[in-house]
Design a binder for these strands. Structure first.
Length: 574
RNA sequence: GGGCCUGUAGCUCAAUUGGUUAGAGCAGAGCGCUCAUAACGCUUUGGUUGGGGGUUCGAGUCCCUCCGGGCCUACCA
């Protein structure tokens, strides 16, 4: 039994996440966590809301709420949606927790003591009307290069030229539109990542089998231009972890907070501490996952994230942990994902384009979405959601191949033998062949799951389901029953056990439907079927069950058309 | 501009890293079955692997070039 620490990239607090966000981190992380638990490993699966930063403040202001209250509310909403999608976090924390404040400040102090923090004075644009400093991209104006009137302070979206906010003609606040802007001096802390460049480079080189997407992004940042740049880790904001605190190795940083990207990954650790607190456990309980000197040496740590998160997880966060000089557990494997597009364009939180988590659950049960998203996960390329593809996939895979198999077996049994595992007969050559075929495919499935090959795992799982239909067709118990009821009984006995087998191995993908199957079978033994022969004998003669309701109702053409139209534009309540 | 990824059947994707005749699912066609959610099974039609050139005994895979798609480029997160 191994110990596996799993973190999903933290969803940002400013609204409900769309399906692209979901499939990029939380959902595959959940798949892996569920699988590893099913295999009997000790798993710690951590996620949290990422609550700091300018967008959170603006979203709260837009909602007419104090930022803290807004975040509390949105955290509750996201927690419910996570439950709705059956995401099996051991803890779903908050980056605004007291634990994260303390740990962020602790690590910053350690970095300061190690000479890895530098104070830098900068000039930054301040908006009098908004009463805040503006990040570059929150300043709009006319591009000096192409004349585009809605160029942002960091880059012109029209001509793609890199800009400095002071380059803009007629600059204005993107928040209020105010032109009452001025350049002010402000002091910030920079993390001297450049001093750790070689250390990080060698650390990346030592990693085996990481996705190209992960390593290529890290290498690019390490070697592009002058190499890894130092990074500002503080901001002039109200909401966040205070930079000035007791014991801080710097002065004059009152009123500033740490940059959201500095404290967010630290929340992985802090959330584990929150987990311990929530369960009445002591510090040793969480430290054995994170401190290599306190038991984390044998932990395997896997992170899941979209590709936009990679630089922070391959460079900044490791720099923070390594630079602290303390024996924190570093990530062992980073599984990164490309983007999921929506019907010819990008999902967009700001534009309300695509299907969002709350809306999805309002249309269909979570398993439909889980299955489609995971079986089409954007592992090698960006992938695309279309309603046609979604309908075809879930109807065929879930309703026809799996759901209908459960239905035909249980209903046939009820009709001929009653709702009880029938006795009589014995397994023959055909049954042995089935068990052999199942074993081969199960091993392939296990290997893909271990390797976090999500799409391949889904394909292999589906192939396992197909074996059941093939067997049933060949065995034809409805026909055999007429001349040899005992043999038909044996065939159905195996088929009922086969359904249980499918429930167990499919659980990581479709936990809600598989729970229904197991409940119908009156079985609570979810032991992974490593020993196939005995696993397929688990439901014994005389064991009673109930025919389940239709597991997966099909998505109709009318629904598809209605939903495609409904989600063609922007969401109205955004 | 620079970097990375990518282009394979009508659609969505594979191809053990250069090795026999490029494979699956869906869609299409034909047959079978009648237990089942008009479900299932069997058979089958689809490919000059984006175009062109090169290396090699051998290229989907490596190199060059052109065309198309995507992402990143450090103050959104």
């Amino acid at each position: 039994m191994a110990r596996i620490l799993i973190t999903s990239a933290l969803p940002y607090i400013n609204g409900i996440k769309h399906l692209g966000n979901l499939v990029g981190s939380q959902l595959p992380a959940d798949l892996y966590a569920r699988y590893m638990r099913a295999r009997g490993h000790e798993v710690m699966f951590i996620c949290a809301t990422d609550e700091h930063g300018t967008p959170a403040e603006l979203a709260a202001a837009k909602a007419g709420k104090a930022v803290e209250a807004y975040c509390t509310e949105m955290h509750a909403v996201q927690t419910e949606l996570a439950k709705g999608f059956a995401l099996s976090f051991d803890h779903y924390g908050r980056s605004s927790s007291a634990r994260n404040y303390a740990l962020t400040q602790h690590l910053a102090a350690r970095l300061g003591a190690a000479g890895l923090i530098e104070e830098v004075s900068e000039k930054q644009v301040y908006s009098n009307a908004d009463g805040r400093f503006l990040p570059d991209r929150y300043i709009e104006g006319t591009c000096p290069n192409c004349g585009y009137e809605r160029a942002r302070g960091d880059q012109c979206e029209n001509c793609t030229k890199q800009l400095d906010p002071t380059d803009l003609i007629n600059p204005r606040s993107a928040i209020s539109g105010s032109t009452d802007l001025e350049v002010r001096d402000t002091k910030h802390l920079f993390l001297r990542q450049s001093k750790l460049r070689d250390t990080l480079d060698q650390w990346i080189d030592r990693q085996q089998g990481w996705p190209v997407l992960t390593t290529s992004i890290a290498k690019k940042w390490l070697h592009d231009g002058d190499g890894l740049q130092d990074r500002g880790i503080t901001r002039d904001l109200d909401w966040g972890v205070p930079v000035q605190f007791d014991g801080a190795p710097w002065r004059g940083m009152d009123g500033k907070v740490f940059y959201v990207w500095f404290d967010a990954p630290i929340e992985y650790i802090a959330a584990t501490a929150e987990w311990a607190d929530a369960n009445g456990l002591d510090d040793a309980a969480w430290r054995r996952w994170w401190r290599t000197d306190e038991g984390a040496d044998d932990v395997r740590y896997v992170q899941f994230m979209g590709k936009d998160n990679v630089p922070f997880h391959t460079l900044s966060f490791p720099a923070t942990l390594i630079g602290s000089g303390e024996p924190w557990k570093l990530v062992d494997y980073i599984k990164s994902f490309n983007y999921l597009n929506y019907d010819g364009g990008q999902f967009s939180t700001s534009q309300g384009r695509g299907v969002f988590m709350d809306q999805a659950l309002g249309l269909l049960p979570a398993d439909y979405w889980r299955w489609w998203l995971l079986s089409h996960a954007p592992e090698n390329n960006d992938s695309e959601f279309t309603w046609e593809n979604f309908q075809a996939s879930v109807n065929k895979d879930l309703a026809d191949v799996l759901g209908n198999l459960v239905s035909r077996v249980t209903k046939f049994c009820r009709a001929k033998f009653g709702e009880v595992v029938p006795e009589g007969g014995s397994y023959g050559v055909r049954e042995d062949q089935l068990i052999q075929a199942l074993g081969a495919r199960l091993r392939a499935y296990e290997q893909h799951m271990e390797a976090m090959e999500v799409r391949k795992s889904a394909a292999e799982l589906r192939a396992l389901w197909v074996l059941g239909n093939e067997y049933l067709q060949e065995a034809a118990p409805w026909s055999v029953y007429k001349t040899d009821p005992d043999m038909a009984a044996a065939q159905i006995r195996l088929s009922l056990n086969l359904i249980r087998f499918y429930a167990i191995v499919s659980q990581p993908f479709i936990p809600q439907a598989t729970s229904k199957i197991m409940a119908s079978l009156g079985c609570t033994d979810w032991t992974w079927p490593s020993e196939l022969t005995s696993a397929l004998d688990r439901l014994e003669t005389g064991h009673s069950f109930e025919v389940p309701d239709v597991l997966f109702a099909k998505m109709t053409d009318d629904q598809r058309q209605e939903w495609a139209a409904q989600f063609a534009g922007e969401r109205r309540d955004a």
